[in-house]
Design a protein around this nucleic acid. Structure first.
Lengths: 238, 238
DNA sequence: GGGGAGCTGTCGGGAAGCTGTCGCTCAACT
DNA sequence: AGTTGAGCGACAGCTTCCCGACAGCTCCCC
């Protein structure tokens, strides 16, 4: 892999002793077109890293046998500089992790939201790709989102979004002009295991719409409802 | 199998403890030209997966003995990356599944409509075929349907279809220029077990015709009636 | 460590849109 | 001309969507 948007597939190694979680991450990554391999133990992780040569690693810290730090040490000892994104339970070893997140690495607290994990992975890859990396800016019509500064603009007007609104909008923008079901949005933007099968998505969309269309009176709504199916973000028409 | 539209047949394993359901799915798949094998228990599923090497698996979660998750874990433990689409009863383990498997949106609630299941399977296959997958657009004459954006156009004109109309039209387009009976349409588009012994299909077709032919006065009707048999979607003539 | 501000999700009412039933009319084939 | 299948208007019940109001929570500042 040279450029993660390029021809080559990103190669991801997921290490987590909870198979459903590892599989979840791998599945999502493949959905993005990446190549993903899982390992459920520290030993296995080292073995697979050696033969698979991943471009990036997702590493749970709580592993039976050799723990996450051990895996990291041995990876580094073998000379690889592959960037690592850590997973850790809330109130776990968060402090120690924080110290490790220099040099392109990052970490995430469980349970995480799939979209957030993928966003972090993309950022880390972009950074590690070299100094030549450019900003990641999403654009749909006159709506822009700078993923580095988290600035979102409708034309010139700067919007102030809450974290949830930001995530939902990012997902809509990233997938535009594909129609997404509420279930897809829920599953990608909210933490896995989120119980609320309620109308949260509707609500956030409703709030987003209000912010997006604030001034521009009857003007172009950007988020369209596809009744009985879901939502799309796209310019005009219909 | 390399490309699911290619020469090789797709190999499908269906796992459901309710034989009629499993057979239903297998039959439809074979009708599509796929190779399909069924299993009614978790143990059987693992055995068959090992020897059959499916390209995709449909897996009911409520199995006697080893349940769906168990099957998945063991499949993964044996190193296979085969994509899985889950089936689950409504309000059953739906939440857990949603959280853990829907990274790629691969589950369906029973009772489902056969066409919807097949559509998901195609999507998953298309996706897992690599990052180079392109949009899936159906075309018959000047009628086009984009399955990602759900945009349906007659020439330039954008149609606005309800979910049922959309499904019926998709089925007609996919099978065009084959003649389909009302029973076939009913069986594919409506959930299995649908009671309505009525003229729903006629009605939906009627509504579809009106939308398809809206402006183009006496122009080419696309949906033709084959009296005493069923309907076909095709360009003009006859 | 107390108070405040903003964020998130729940509840529920009301509006809009979708779906299937009924039954009459119309068209096609014999 | 009779018979049978298809078309379709009208309607009622149901589902889906939207959004105001509110309460719990977290995080920050003093």
């Amino acid at each position: 892999m040279q450029h993660y948007e390029g021809v080559e597939k990103v190669r991801l190694l997921v290490v987590d002793d909870d198979p459903p979680i590892a599989d979840l991450v791998a599945t999502v990554a493949r959905y993005e077109g990446w190549e993903a391999v899982t390992a459920y133990t520290g030993e296995d992780a080292l073995r697979r890293a050696a033969e698979f040569h991943p471009d990036i690693v997702v590493l749970d810290l709580m592993l039976p046998g050799v723990d996450g730090f051990g895996v990291l040490d041995r990876l580094r000892a073998s000379g690889t500089m592959v960037p690592v994104v850590f997973l850790t339970a809330r109130d776990g070893v968060a402090d120690r992790v924080a110290g490790l997140t220099r040099g392109g690495d990052d970490y995430l607290v469980k349970p995480f939201a799939v979209e957030e994990l993928m966003a972090r992975l993309r950022t880390v890859l972009r950074r590690s790709a070299g100094p030549s990396f450019q900003r990641s800016v999403l654009r749909v019509g006159d709506l822009t989102m700078d993923e580095d500064t988290r600035e979102v603009r409708r034309g010139e007007r700067l919007l102030s979004l809450t974290p949830t609104e930001y995530e939902v909008l990012r997902y809509l923008m990233r997938k535009s002009p594909t129609v997404l079901t509420k279930a897809q949005i829920l599953d990608h933007v909210w933490e896995y295991g989120f119980g609320g099968r309620s109308n949260v998505v509707e609500l956030v969309v409703s709030r987003l719409r209000r912010k997006l269309d604030e001034t521009d009176e009857g003007a172009a709504g950007l988020i369209h409802t596809v009744r009985g199916f879901g939502y799309v973000l796209r310019q005009a028409a219909e």
